[in-house]
Simulated scan of single mutants.
Amino acid sequence: MFDSSFIVWLQQFSNGFLDSFFTIITTVGNPEYYMIAFPFIYWCISKRMAYRFTIFFLLSTYVNTIVKGFTDVARPCSSEVRVLYGDSTYGSSSFPSGHTQGTASFWGYLAYYFKNRYFTCFAVVLTALVGLSRIYLGLHFAIDVVAGLFIAIMVLTLFNLFYDKVASRLDGLSWKLKVGLSTVLPLLLLVPPGHDKGMLVGFAIGLMVGYQLDKRYLNFSNSATIAKQGVKFVIGVVGLFVLRVVLKELFEVIGFSALTEHGADMVRYLFVGLWASYFAPYLFVKLGLSKEPKIEIGQDHRVKV
């Protein structure tokens, strides 16, 4: 089942161009990519979609982590295949492919949301290329990629079937309970063993809590001219990376980074998530880069899930 024969066959076509091409393509599935993509959706497309998207992506990642911890399959052996970009997978299980599942989840959700056949074709091709890159680089068996794709489709299908029903029940909860759930639910991802969990958990908590803060105190609007959207994105991303770097250096100076395996990353990315979902939008409003939210007659002010 976990056979290297397909990797060996694929790598017979190896050359410098393909090495560089697939190394670049595989980074589309890196966690850092989502640190930019989710804020862009939140700032420029739909904050409610970004919030729902975050819950879905967290659920998909949780399933991947559970399966990885349960199966604990070793990655392809470097004595049998050529392994490139191997440092990115150090200490993590092979089955199923997290990069493939993450890419399929991310672009699959967007394809479902936009329902445009050209965009769907793009999503399918990109997901296929990321999956192929994991095999070409010697980081995964073919079955890992197939399983990651299958799990992403399964989770997306179930999520779309049940999310609205669950959300409607949670809509009546108090604001404090919603903030509490936004904090506790991502923490469940810390239970099973896994890779890069602190980053994802912290960012998810920050984004989800910030969304609730925005709905209660700010009500930031995504609507703006194309020029203002571009300015928002540049300011937001610069602030995001400055915060990410500054906090990393600060934690290393005070020795916080060495306290727990995932603790420092979780705290650092919690602030990054809060910046993305609340403090950057607050700055956009103050700078006049966001239109004032429109309240329709008869519209209530309850915080929507």
Results as ranks from 00 to 15, higher is better:
Tyr42Gly: 09
Gly29Glu: 04
Thr100Ile: 04
Tyr85Cys: 15
Leu181Asn: 08
Leu58Gln: 05
Trp275Gly: 03
Ser94Phe: 02
Phe13Ile: 00
Ser60Thr: 08
Ile235Tyr: 09
His195Ile: 07
Gly98Phe: 07
Asn219Thr: 12
Gly108His: 06
Gly288Tyr: 06
Gly172Ile: 00
Leu158Val: 15
Glu252Trp: 03
Pro281Tyr: 02
Lys291Thr: 04
Pro293Gly: 06
Phe220Trp: 10
Gly91Asn: 04
Ile41Ser: 06
Pro31Arg: 10
Leu161Met: 14
Val145Ile: 10
Pro192Val: 12
Thr61Gly: 13
Ala50His: 10
Glu296Asn: 11
Tyr282Thr: 00
Phe233His: 02
Met266Arg: 04
Ile25Gly: 01
Arg134Asp: 08
His195Arg: 03
Ala280Pro: 00
Ile36Met: 13
Phe251Asp: 08
Val237Met: 15
Leu181Ser: 02
Thr127Asn: 08
Thr120Lys: 08
Val130Cys: 06
Leu259Ser: 07
Asp214Phe: 03
Arg75Cys: 05
Leu58Trp: 14
Ser105Tyr: 08
Ile205Asn: 02
Lys228Gln: 12
Ser277Phe: 07
Ser5Ala: 11
Met1Thr: 02
Thr103Ser: 12
Ser14His: 12
Leu18Gln: 03
Phe6Asp: 03
Lys68Asp: 05
Val209Cys: 11
Tyr278Gln: 01
Lys115His: 13
Ser182Leu: 06
Leu59Pro: 00
Arg134Lys: 10
Trp175Gly: 09
Val285Ser: 07
Thr260Phe: 14
Ser174Arg: 11
Met49Val: 15
Gly298Gln: 12
Thr65Asn: 11
Arg82Thr: 11
Ser182Met: 06
Leu149Pro: 00
Ala147Asp: 00
Leu213Pro: 02
Tyr217Ala: 11
Tyr211Pro: 04
Leu139Met: 12
Phe122Ser: 14
Leu213Tyr: 14
Val246Ile: 09
Tyr163Phe: 15
Asp164Leu: 10
Arg169Cys: 07
Ser20Gly: 01
Pro186Thr: 05
Ile151Thr: 02
Asp72Cys: 05
Val83Asn: 00
Phe233Asp: 05
His99Thr: 02
Lys115Ala: 14
Lys197Ser: 11
Ile135Tyr: 12
Lys47Ser: 13
Thr71Cys: 08
Val184Arg: 04
Ala142Pro: 11
Glu80Leu: 12
Arg302Val: 06
Ile36Leu: 15
Ile226Tyr: 09
Ser277Val: 03
Leu200Ile: 15
Pro293Asn: 11
Lys197Trp: 01
Leu156Thr: 05
Met35Gln: 13
